[in-house]
């Protein structure tokens, strides 16, 4: 077990280092931020002073060295636009993104599993077929287009819900959250559904396939033969056994949800990290881009590591095959 843990941890660290190098090199070539930040009438001396202040005059490897040393101390540079530490700006936006991602995850699980089980129990019924057809659409249509349709239908045509923004927020455990006020909740619904649709389709397909398999097992037949009610067979015998693969997917998809939030946040003007990233790319605000990418990579790597470790505890076959491989 310890060998496995150390190996897995090493892989995660390697992934972090590789991404740090890629992110840094990538961001270095974005363009010259001095041109963007300084006003066009500035003198040559001003330009040089700004370049020096931002550390852009040093060679690439030195900039990288400084970047890594600072990053390890939690300092990912100062935003060119806001003039404040980039990490602080990102962390201010983190709760909004996390709230959106968690609500979306709840929706995709809460709706996806029942629909998937339903479609799995009656695969050839009209309901089962429509659920599968719907999930194919949720799967293949671009996320931003689904979001736009939601806005067009519920905000523009019906006028039931606001088209963007976060609405009123309240303090909850020291964080600003939307879901406790009616106004905040109405702003949260559409973006959360938009972010949830893709994962929901994934969970529906997974739950359906597993339900169909489990229903053929002897223990389900036996439970039916024993005369248990249909509800009990589904809720206890079927549901329990389809949860193992579903839970794995949920864990792994949580990380990608943070990345997919970039699109949803841009469509709905949700003030999270993803929208900040797109704004920063347009403004060439390098430190914020770096801080965003490093934080997101860290979140994804950490979640992947956690899921793998939990899973290897639950299922010894995985760590044994990894150790031999």
């Amino acid at each position: 077990m310890i060998v496995y843990l150390v190996r897995r941890l090493g892989q995660s660290l390697l992934a972090l280092v590789a991404m740090a190098i890629l992110v840094f090199i990538g961001v270095y070539f974005i363009g010259n931020p001095v041109d963007v930040l300084i006003n066009p009438e500035a003198t040559q001396a001003d330009i040089i002073a700004t370049t020096e202040r931002l550390g852009l005059d040093k060679p690439l490897y030195q900039q990288f060295g400084i970047f890594v040393m600072n990053a390890l101390q939690g300092d990912l540079g100062t935003s060119f636009v806001y003039g404040r530490p980039a990490l602080d700006i990102i962390l201010e936006r983190l709760p909004a993104t996390m709230e959106l991602a968690l609500v979306a995850l709840l929706l995709s699980v809460g709706i996806g599993i029942p629909l998937g089980v339903w479609a799995g129990l009656r695969p050839y019924s009209i309901a089962g077929r429509s659920i599968m057809g719907g999930s194919l659409l949720g799967f293949s249509l671009p996320n931003f287009w689904q979001g736009m349709l939601l806005i067009l239908i519920f905000a523009v045509i019906l006028g039931w819900l606001p088209a963007g923004g976060r609405g009123e927020t309240t303090e909850f455990l020291g964080l600003q959250v939307s879901f406790l006020t009616l106004d905040g909740l109405s702003h949260l619904i559409l973006p959360a559904i938009n972010l949830a649709l893709f994962k929901m389709s994934l969970i529906i397909r997974l739950a359906r396939a597993n339900t169909r398999e489990v229903c053929l097992q002897d223990y389900v037949k036996f439970a039916r033969a024993k005369g248990l009610s249909g509800r009990r067979v589904v809720l206890v015998h079927v549901l329990k056994n389809i949860m193992i693969p579903v839970v794995t997917i949920i864990g792994l998809e949580l990380g990608s949800m943070v990345a997919f939030a970039i699109v949803t946040e841009t469509v709905f003007a949700w003030p999270g990290m993803g929208k900040l990233l797109i704004d920063s790319i347009n403004l060439l605000d390098r430190p914020v881009i770096v801080a965003y990418l490093m934080l997101t990579v860290l979140i994804i790597v950490a979640i992947n590591l956690l899921v793998d470790v939990i899973y290897s505890l639950l299922d010894p076959r995985i760590r044994l095959s990894e150790m031999n491989g």
Binding site: G26, A259, V297, I300
Partner: peptide, 20 residues
Amino acid sequence: DLQLSFPAILIALILLALLG
């Protein structure tokens, strides 16, 4: 494996931020 463990959209965004 390393590449596939990150969402495609994130990698594409990093690259386009790099390339323009």
